[in-house]
């Protein structure tokens, strides 16, 4: 019983690894489904969500809140989906979107550029070696910029993951074995405590997603369903926020109590 996120570059065989891990452990393997659900739920075209989570933000976008809102929508859907447990997620930024959840096994699959070019050539008919190389380099660059601008970290930084597996000498089947072995260890098993933490995280993400369009600078925490909403703004937006929060009590399941704290800095564990 675990949650596994597999981060990968394009054509790094990460998808194959994720599917095989899910099949071996009998877990669900999810990736694009999260975006489709978020698109349906929040009425945003899927292509916009893909761009928000894939492409590096432009200079103008860095000052706007649209992208953060889209990321909050995706995170909300992902948190709800993985809270049911037994999931392998190999979509974009899983390890960052689920940051702070202790029993998530975070894996990165890497491959040599040469191997990735060969895979790209075999999977995309008519693409030349040079074009495949340029495509992969651009893709890596976008990922790097995206992660740095939103989370201030480098996706190539190994310390973000529990395991980094280089698929070259190690084969896909070896990587699958290593991940399955790690996933069955005690610290990645879903205990009651971890389940509660995951449920709280899902509640906080849903509330954030519901508020982010109107109140971009809120931070949300939840402990046993007792939700605290933090905002740096003072009473100016107070009435509006209070009204919206009261509506949320009925919309989102699992909330015991809702409190709003005005004029306070956001705590580090806030969503």
């Amino acid at each position: 019983m675990a949650i596994i996120t597999i981060s990968r570059g394009s054509y790094s065989k990460g998808k194959e690894v994720a599917e095989m891990v899910a099949a071996k452990l009998g877990y669900d393997c999810i990736s694009r489904e999260v975006l489709i659900k978020a698109s349906d739920h929040f009425h945003i075209p899927e292509v916009k969500l893909i761009r928000a989570i894939h492409d590096a933000p432009s200079i103008l976008e860095r000052f706007g809140h649209k992208r953060q809102a889209f990321v909050a929508f995706i995170r909300s859907e992902l948190a709800c989906r993985v809270s049911t447990d037994n999931v392998v997620y190999h979509g974009l930024a899983g390890h960052l979107l689920l940051k702070g959840i202790p029993h998530v096994l975070k894996v990165r699959i890497i491959a040599q550029m040469g191997d990735r070019i060969i895979t790209a050539e075999s999977k995309r008919a008519g693409i030349s070696k040079e074009k495949a190389r340029t495509l992969l380099l651009n893709d890596d660059q976008e990922r790097r910029k995206w992660t740095q601008s939103l989370y201030g970290v480098d996706p190539w930084d190994s310390s973000l993951y529990d395991l980094v597996i280089h698929v070259h000498k190690l084969q896909v089947s070896d990587a699958v074995e290593l991940i399955c072995d790690a996933a069955t260890r005690d610290q990645f098993k879903t205990t009651d405590k971890y389940k509660r933490k995951m449920d709280d995280f899902a509640i906080a993400c849903q509330i954030k997603a519901a508020l982010v369009n109107q109140f971009s600078e809120v931070g949300v925490t939840s402990h046993f369903g007792n939700v605290l909403i933090f905002t740096k703004s003072g009473d100016r937006v107070g009435q509006k926020l209070k009204k919206r929060v009261n509506e949320l009590d009925k919309e989102i399941k699992g909330i015991n109590n809702l409190e709003i704290h005005f004029g306070l800095p956001l705590p580090p564990d806030a969503v």
């Binding site: 202790p102 310390s159 993951y161 395991l163 980094v164 597996i165 790690a182």
Partner: peptide, 20 residues
Amino acid sequence: ENEPSGYDLVISLNQIEPGE
């Protein structure tokens, strides 16, 4: 030397125990 592609495997002990 921080570049993960220089290794076959990188293991972080933040979650994984040394024995494991």
